[in-house]
Design a protein around this nucleic acid. Sequence first.
DNA 1: GTGAAAGCGCTAACAA
DNA 2: TTGTTAGCGCTTTCAC
Lengths: 332, 332
Amino acid sequence: MTTRKDVAKLAGVSVATVSHVLSKKKYVSPELVEKVENVIRELNYQPNIIARSLSTKKTHHVGIIVNNIANTYYSEIALGMSKVASDHGYTVSIYFVGDDPQKYATSAIQRQLDGLFIATNGEFFTTEQMKKMLSANMVFVNSVMPGVGSTVSFDYGNGVEKMMNHLVELNHQRIGFLCGIPKSTPNFLRYKSFIRLLQKHQLPVLEECIIESEAPYRTDQNDGYIAMKKLLKTNSRITAVFCLNDPMALGAMKAIREEGLRIPQDISVVGCDDQFFASCIEPALTTLSVPKEEMGRQAMIQLLKQMDTGEKDDIILGVDFIVRDSTGPAPN
Amino acid sequence: MTTRKDVAKLAGVSVATVSHVLSKKKYVSPELVEKVENVIRELNYQPNIIARSLSTKKTHHVGIIVNNIANTYYSEIALGMSKVASDHGYTVSIYFVGDDPQKYATSAIQRQLDGLFIATNGEFFTTEQMKKMLSANMVFVNSVMPGVGSTVSFDYGNGVEKMMNHLVELNHQRIGFLCGIPKSTPNFLRYKSFIRLLQKHQLPVLEECIIESEAPYRTDQNDGYIAMKKLLKTNSRITAVFCLNDPMALGAMKAIREEGLRIPQDISVVGCDDQFFASCIEPALTTLSVPKEEMGRQAMIQLLKQMDTGEKDDIILGVDFIVRDSTGPAPN
DNA sequence: GTGAAAGCGCTAACAA
DNA sequence: TTGTTAGCGCTTTCAC
């Protein structure tokens, strides 16, 4: 490994001078600059970021904690983050929420991460743990965690409202919700909005038609399938079902078909997220569309700002409602 | 930040002793061990990995270069890697193949990554670049890159063989292939096997029915849709189509439906990867199933081995063929 | 303008 | 058995 010392020796200058031309923070005579730059090129010298980090106490390394990177919802968010991060010289590491939250917290501290994104759908860390995690440093949150750091979130409330208007227009009255995670999850906007809007439209809140999945709450197609089977077994004669996300909707559609019911003639299905397959399946899925990559981008931008100025913000990103073919008029 | 020095002072021992109890490599009297451990707990001391790395020249940090993490194919591989990595105290950072391969190479060097996985479907780096990348260190490859590092790959050849047997049994003779990436891609096993097996079964190689996508080769549902439209326009009267992956198959199915054709009565469709949606869509997709998470796991295991012993291996993972409802007898 | 040197937190060889 | 100390490669202050 070639170090700054090697460069200095070959260029006949001091190590400090090499640093100065590298950082461009101090004036160095053009002759030396050139000489040093030549040697750097010649030796193909690459500064050691680890050493720099130790000295500056800035690692330019951030982490993102996600539920399940194999879910495109999270991976697209991660993609957005990575793009912005990369443009700013940051490296991003991925931590999967697995067994032990403490483990990630520990690693994040020991690695001296400059920042951390929390992109999970539950409350995996307590505020206390969070604060400790980066010793009062910047922490990013996607699901809301007041006071700890900036937040970037989707305006699900608004999205759910548009969806409910749509369903009501189509005369749906008995509407189920495959909510995936526990109703009691803090800041569970989709759930809260769902209830609020049922009430607003004076529709019944059918408790037995709001189906939570079992831990570990994968909220994937399989959870959706199971939940929908359960919902159909209740015999509640719902005419429409809202699903936490598109994979769950996909599973739900399968369950519906297996019962010999048609979509949307017998049951309308609404998903959430507008994942890549939503427009391709048959029938194409009506869904809420959230700007996932943009969220990742915004999150990283907020992190950068927070690291720079200490300012914390709460960003809310708009949600679109996309009507496709999986919703139709309620049957009589 | 509390350092080892703080611990030493409070415990009334030397910094070395603290290290010794931490590393457990040297005997320390039980009394001191306890004293030190108490102080560590009291101060909530966390060793600084950055500093350790600088000293040991091991970062316990690996990188993975992927095409598109938003593709579950890659994200599941990443998941497998991460799990094993995490179990061994490694952190994994993700690099997205974007504009500039050089950029990742540089970052990997400067960050002193211990290892690097290359999980892309093209030849983004030359062997030369690779070698330089980690100064003859361990590099992992998913698509084959002889001599540079260990490889882990899927036995696509075998999978394609099973698939072709299936199609031939169903009397398909004119078979298309949405191959996504250029046919000329090195080690393009699926393509090579496809050709080989057509010949083996004495079926025609319909050049105009092997559709490459356009750069940047996203090989997603949209590429599949476009490619299938193109294929149908050739009027080649194919009765079956093999797709590079499941998302492309999904797009292809949409294109087929739009032309008023039925699956599988008019055209049989085969995907590849067995992604999560394959079994849920209608008709359920016949596809090659590859153990993605297992591949990630194996890759990390190989990396660990390579870092430990220097041994390089070539692992080949089996591929299953899963018959579902998107394939049926060829029409007359 | 340039360079010497202290220090970032930790490891590990060597002393005591 | 425990402690001293010289690095690891880089930054940065402060002399010269």
